[in-house]
Design a protein around this nucleic acid. Sequence first.
DNA 1: TTTAATTTCGCTTTTGTCGAAAAAATAATT
DNA 2: AATTATTTTTTCGACAAAAGCGAAATTAAA
Lengths: 108, 108
Amino acid sequence: MKGTNLGELEEIVLLIVANLYDHAYGILIKNEIEAKCNRSITISTVHNVLQRLQEKGFLSSRYSEPTKERGGKRKLLFTVTASGQTALNTIKEMREKLWSGIPKVAFE
Amino acid sequence: MKGTNLGELEEIVLLIVANLYDHAYGILIKNEIEAKCNRSITISTVHNVLQRLQEKGFLSSRYSEPTKERGGKRKLLFTVTASGQTALNTIKEMREKLWSGIPKVAFE
DNA sequence: TTTAATTTCGCTTTTGTCGAAAAAATAATT
DNA sequence: AATTATTTTTTCGACAAAAGCGAAATTAAA
């Protein structure tokens, strides 16, 4: 890989951000992953992946305004870029092609 | 991950082995990946992944008889195990669920 | 100054990647 | 027939990228 590929977790995070549309930020993303993917993950891992996805150009980000709740500092909100959408579609089509080529008898 | 997860490349290799059914071995797998996934990969990479998939219990292997062509030494043939099939199905369903939850407006 | 929500930092383990060496078979040469 | 070359295939050793975590830093309200 040369920094352009989409890792297994990166793909999941990208899909979750797309699910969350306008509200995607660290902790919410973490919670959504745990809920929808039945998998535990720490917030540092999420942020690590988020940053990598942005460096790859698959996500963009902006800061929200602080909220009025206690500790409600501004959030870093993420959005899937056109390039990120393309990456998701590409890998999806590739996998669909592979699945369609599997004969009935292929498994033990 | 504790040796039970399926990496991005591992999943591709598993799908390719399923595609090849009874004939899956190193070089053929390499060629199929390059043909169907539009991606170049070395034979050492393929063998490395095959070994890890076997350690994870997602593949089993056996040796073929040598063939009569020049250099035709015995091949290590791979088959997807029941556990491997389950892993593939699980991640497939999870992604389908995520895709179905994406609103139309989700991309930039 | 305490507490809460959030992001950033430094570090380790697992995956992905490759070049080169080893092994095992047939073909060619002496 | 013995040795050497060539071909197909797998194994080995090393390094880079992705996945993962705990703890520190930041920023807001109480």
